[in-house]
Design a binder for these strands. Structure first.
Lengths: 352, 352
DNA sequence: ACCTGTATTTTACGCGCGTAAAAAATTTCG
DNA sequence: CGAAATTTTTTACGCGCGTAAAATACAGGT
């Protein structure tokens, strides 16, 4: 706490509202209002006066009163499927920072992997009257009609997971390209991979990866093989582990190389392989190669560390926010829906 | 989407405000206001009328107008050190659910492990005028004076990490007890453990665990040993991994049993041990035993799975919310600061 | 000093709801 | 059935700020 801060807390009279603050700074209330709406919209000398007063008196406008009678709030809603997944936690954090940098207030909600929560969140967000929303739908179970109704009301950019023609834009990861480079790498360096995936994956990206795997294999003149595991819900590590144990016990492996649909399944499968004493890695002396997809924050610390393809979530976040902010500030809705995909990269580690 | 919902979206006229809704439901506006403030405060027949109208017309009060001129909002602030840590994500989610169940609106913020963010968040929360706040401070670097000033203004329950006499109550994990049962277990089943910890841990719980380890060892007539590793910041897995590699390479191990200050360090250390080919587990044929602390969501899926002590975060969350809600609803501040600790449990897995 | 264009002030109104007090209606109970 | 207790309505005001329009002050250029 600096001396100035202390002074602010000690000496300064409590400012009750913008009227008082305007009087103390020698300006009119509407001017102050304008300043808070956009500091660049007032004369430089005026801005200086306001900012000096701000340092002396520590006034902040009441956010409820601000938004109460505003045409458009400065809020931007962010909705992710599940904040307890470090992957989404990371990308949400990145987006939050970009939203703040753009001069907006992020309002983050998590759907906890549940379509019911997702609808609640949509209502929740609607009541916050955001200027726009960044939406990562929960998945194929996502209630499309509710999302569609929501999207009519305000600018919305989808990310991570696409839903048909919904939203003003979609920004995401190129599952096809990323799967392709992994398949090529695996084929080039060892046995062709089998694809390890849930029979009923809750996430729509899973289908894209599945198809991309099949296409990449066929392009190389190889026959795709799938291990379709059981299990419902989002507890991927657990599903990968349980079904991994079963698959290993039953020796249902057409290849020594397993490409998992995502890192979380791979993390579970690695645990199963370790427990069964199967050595995972590339080269002589190893029984299995395992690869993932996403470059999950924990993929560096599995044993062995996980070879995977990374999502370029820095660019995904940047482009999603940029697109939404442009939309919001133009005051219009997108004329044509634009889809932007960013390439993934091969992240070579020890597991494959 | 049910037939009723569709009807709501299609047929119903858009309700602009509470006045209109009151007219349509045949009641006066203040009665509606009272209902939303507390549905139980109106006669049963009146409540029925309102709820029927609510189903027909899909009206929701404007939250900005609601809070604008209210003595006390129905908001409860929740602040955690870092939502990207699955441990905090889990407990935050649990708390959110309890807060909603208690009839309040949770407002969740994360400090991203930074004291600067923490102060921002305090300001942020203050401007939301919550009825009370659940606060998990970032750690010893936490700006105590800012927190103290904040706490004067509204009921605050600290959790996870204690700060001296601050807040109306503290609810947390019994680090001493949990460390003790782990030390006893390790001593009973093998070599006495050394304690693996950062030289300058950012988290204050680290010191409690350190002291508890020393006390537990001495109580058993043993000499405590510490491996104090380098590294700054919150990237515990990375620090545990990097320093784990060094410790193993330099053979600075006074025992084959390592008790890590927390699971995240242990996860890093496990990765290092694996990479160096040291087999981790209990019994013959294993070079090392490694144990953690916290029962991190990923501890089940490490290789080998991690033996640890769990925090009873279900009860911690429940008691923290209960305490705060009682405080808020009494309208008073706590007369005496109450500290409540919940016991941890030994979680035996494969690593020790 | 004059003109022009932008910044600011003045004036005025309204947003949607909370809240308080008093009047009216309803329920409860003797 | 009437009085008391409770609920609801009426009435009235205010919260803190957004916003619009018109009046005024100010900057830069000639």
């Amino acid at each position: 706490m600096t001396r100035d801060d202390r002074q602010k807390y000690m000496d300064a009279p409590k400012i009750r509202n913008m009227e008082e603050f305007a009087a103390l700074s020698g300006l009119s209330r509407p001017t102050i209002s304008k300043y808070f709406h956009d500091p660049g919209s007032v004369r430089a000398s005026t801005r200086t006066k306001i900012e000096e007063a701000l340092e002396r008196y520590d006034y902040r406008p009441n956010i409820y009163a601000m938004n109460q009678n505003r045409r458009l709030t400065k809020n931007i809603g962010i909705m992710v499927p599940n904040l307890a997944d470090p992957f989404f936690a990371e990308i949400a954090r990145k987006i939050e920072g970009l939203v703040i940098a753009a001069g907006y207030r992020p309002m983050l909600v998590s759907s906890h992997d549940g379509p019911a929560h997702e609808i609640d969140n949509l209502d929740q967000l609607r009541s916050l009257k955001p200027a726009g929303v960044l939406l990562a739908p929960v998945g194929r179970a996502s209630v499309k009609e509710a999302v569609a109704a929501f999207i009519e009301d305000m600018p919305t950019v989808l990310f991570d997971s696409n839903i048909d023609g919904l939203g003003d834009a979609f920004v995401g990861h190129d599952n096809r390209q990323a799967t392709e480079i992994m398949v090529e790498y695996l084929v080039r360096t060892g046995e062709p991979p089998v694809f390890f995936e849930m029979r009923n994956p809750p996430n729509p990206n899973a289908f894209k990866r599945q198809n991309a795997y099949a296409a990449a294999m066929e392009a190389l003149g190889l026959t795709p093989h799938f291990i379709r595991i059981e299990g419902e819900g989002w507890n991927f590590e657990e599903i990968g582990y349980t079904e991994g144990l079963r698959v290993i016990a039953e020796r249902r492996l057409p290849s020594d190389t397993i490409l998992c649909s995502n890192d979380r399944l791979a993390i579970g499968l690695l645990a199963a392989a370790y427990e069964k004493g199967w050595r995972v890695g590339r080269g002589a002396g190893y029984a299995l190669r395992i690869a993932g997809h996403d470059d999950h924050p924990f993929a560096r610390f599995t044993s062995p560390s996980l070879t995977t393809t990374s999502q370029n979530y820095a660019d995904i976040a940047r482009h999603a926010v940029k697109t939404l902010v442009a939309l919001v500030e133009s005051g219009a809705r997108a004329s044509a829906r634009e889809t932007t995909l960013f390439d993934g990269k091969l992240v070579m580690r020890a597991s494959a």
